[in-house]
Design a protein around this nucleic acid. Structure first.
Lengths: 406, 406
DNA sequence: TAAATTATGTTAAATTGCTTGACAGAAGGA
DNA sequence: TCCTTCTGTCAAGCAATTTAACATAATTTA
């Protein structure tokens, strides 16, 4: 009985069931038969047959073999992967990842490149444009077969605008029309969303959060942000800044944060905080394999994560402390949102259980039983691809639903 | 183009537009004409005419006079208030309020009674049953004309169950089937929801939050809870405990809370915290009109609020401090939720601007600009009736939409 | 091996909700 | 008074669904 999307009733009122049917096909692992579609959506088999005929005529859906006990075997339907291609882009502070995928969201090719996001939107987006060209050339998928682009960016996206507003780690990008600039260059529709939101979508569609209608994806890196999926839909908030968990106050009189306040989560558990913590602990005479790095001011969070991996106790201690602070913020989020699942992603999630354990412990302690007892906390299944996969899903959403309304 | 509800596509897929039409009629102040309905919903005038004919045949809608410049005057439609009646119940820790309303949600009669919620569900619900009888007798609205009951309770309601789970201030109520017990006694459908959620609905429908698709209603009393309206719908969360803002950590090593943790919002700004604060300040030699109360341990938050109203500086100072702590929690909520409006309700909101100012200031300081710059913060327009009105709205939702699907 | 059983998928007629396009009704202004 | 402007209604047609009968494909049983 569950629905995948709760459509905006204005946008999708037209062929409501057709949209619901194609999404159920898209997001059911291993496909779905006509009769299951009928059951899930409360429609008759006849209605499904008619709709599927349309979708097959449009070449969007194809039949594959299926199995069943007793009686006639159902014909399993799936998206026709050869219908076309999309690109998912994940823009981070230091890297851009572009993924080329077919209509089944299967990744055909991947291309990652180091950047400095402060080079500004034109510079970075021109590079993205070139990367799409490289993907096309390498894979033999000509540009005209690529139908849409999804882009995740590390800042708050103003709802429906394709622009970010005052992003702390994207200097020079505020109010730049990302979707228009890239869309004009590529002559394709572009969907821009926050990277944590994209991560939530990716993990929901093909990762750890499959089937979960209420989930939060926490991206822990230099910045800390959350993408919220509520009742099966991304929740953007009134202006588009929902999920900005990085600047929640953990300690009213805690350390200064780059945003000007004190005791923000990011100032206590973000990448810079982790690095500074390491420097401070070494200065106080702490023993660690990190001390081989000179000067110690150049230590980054990446170093700490790597050394924690290799068993360095001081580095592990730092990550555990960060985990506790994260846990406090997540506990607050769990009390407010009551998600069914929390997925930890981003760079610092590489460390896995070392950080997950203090998070779980703190959340268990600091949040309501009704909320915490049915809560799953896990690391991202798609790893560093979460946001890129979400961008693919959003790109496919655009082109597939637009074809149905045509 | 705005929609009032984003219906659960399963529940309301049947007569989608009919449901949307009646809600637009219900929640548009002073009614709405056919052509406006057509414009708002993207339908033709002819389609609206047909649907309204059905609704008039069912006696749900009636025509009233309207005005317009140039051309034919539109016929304004409104809910037929005489179609029937519902009761809204607001159960608090120390009081129960029952409201009798017609189909237009106009309150016909009101009955408030002091209770002790720890007397347990049978005792309290039996009293509610009697109160409904009194309302019926006093107003002359016979019980058979009362079609449904909405109930707000001060604890987390398990989604779709009509039961609360481990409510801190409702001892003995956990997992008691409130809807069944009351529904059987009254032989009417009963809708149970959290009181803050009901407050959000009430303020959205007929209070300070009209037309706002994303709002948070904060109920500040002995406990502190929030009701969240997101994209025009109540958000319950995975298990029903969304909005439980009272036990969010404000200060990792703050004072003990009744929940066993330290530094919870409720332990720093709730009713008991305000009272304890007053006692402590008096013991330390503070001057205040509160010192006339003997013994000073018997001072309640109500006393502090009353004295703050009368101009007592120490009491005002305590309320202002509580406002700052509340502001910290609300700032975190604003960062996560990004609502368009925050409405402060509950007992402690009586004090108005005295508390609103520190809240506004803290939220402005501690939340993201994109979120805070478009945010309105106000006190509840319906006062202590917010939750009761929400219960009326929910009761009407049940009976009206059930008639449309029939 | 054939017949019975069970389940999925298809078809045609009827129904429903909506659009199209023409028209009727009700107000104000030239 | 007629014209203009706007709201509301009507009838025909269309598209999405349901109903109910039937066709098809597999397994189980006789």
């Amino acid at each position: 009985m569950s629905n995948f999307f709760r459509y905006d009733s204005r946008q999708y009122a037209k062929n409501f069931n057709k949209h619901a049917i194609i999404d159920l096909i898209r997001f059911t692992p291993n496909g779905i038969s006509r009769i299951e579609l009928a059951r899930e959506l409360g429609l008759t088999r006849a209605a499904i047959t008619a709709t599927i005929n349309d979708l097959q005529a449009a070449d969007l859906v194809r039949e594959v073999k299926g199995k069943h006990p007793n009686g006639r075997k159902p014909i399993v339907l799936e998206i026709n992967p050869k219908h076309g291609y999309v690109v998912g882009v994940d823009i981070g502070a230091t890297h851009v990842t572009t993924l080329l995928a077919n209509y089944s969201a299967q990744v055909i090719d991947e291309f990652e490149k180091g950047i400095d996001i402060s080079a500004g939107p034109e510079n970075i987006l021109d590079q993205v444009f070139e990367m799409v060209g490289v993907l096309s050339a390498r894979s033999g998928v000509t540009l005209d077969k690529i139908q849409a682009i999804g882009v995740g960016v590390p800042g708050p996206v103003i709802t429906g605008s394709g622009m970010v507003s005052d992003p702390p780690i994207m200097p020079g990008w505020s109010h730049f029309p990302i979707d228009q600039y890239l869309g004009t260059k590529l002559n394709k529709p572009v969907n821009v969303a926050n990277d944590a939101e994209m991560g939530a979508v990716g993990e929901w569609a093909y990762g750890a959060g499959r089937g979960e209608r209420n989930l939060a994806y926490i991206k822990v890196g230099r910045g800390i942000g959350a993408g919220l999926l509520m009742d099966g839909q991304i929740y953007h908030g009134a202006t588009g800044s929902a999920g900005e968990i990085g600047h929640i106050t953990i300690e009213e009189n805690g350390p200064m944060c780059s945003c000007g306040n004190r005791g923000c989560l990011e100032a206590m558990a973000g990448g810079n905080a982790v690095a500074m913590n390491a420097v401070n602990k070494l200065r106080q005479g702490g023993r660690s394999s990190l001390s081989s790095i000179k000067p110690i001011e150049s230590i980054t969070s990446r170093n700490v994560i790597d050394e924690a991996f290799r068993g360095d106790l001081l580095s592990q201690q730092i990550m555990i402390e960060a985990g506790y602070h994260l846990g406090t913020a997540i506990a607050g989020m769990v009390n407010m949102f009551n998600p069914g699942m929390v997925i930890i992603g981003g760079n610092m999630a590489r460390i896995g259980d070392l950080m997950l354990e203090p998070i779980r412990k703190t959340v268990q302690e600091r949040s309501l039983r009704l909320a915490s007892s049915n809560l799953r906390i896990a690391t991202a299944l798609l790893g560093k691809r979460s946001s890129g996969m979400g961008a693919i899903v959003e790109a496919l959403n655009m082109v597939i639903h637009q074809q149905i309304n045509a």
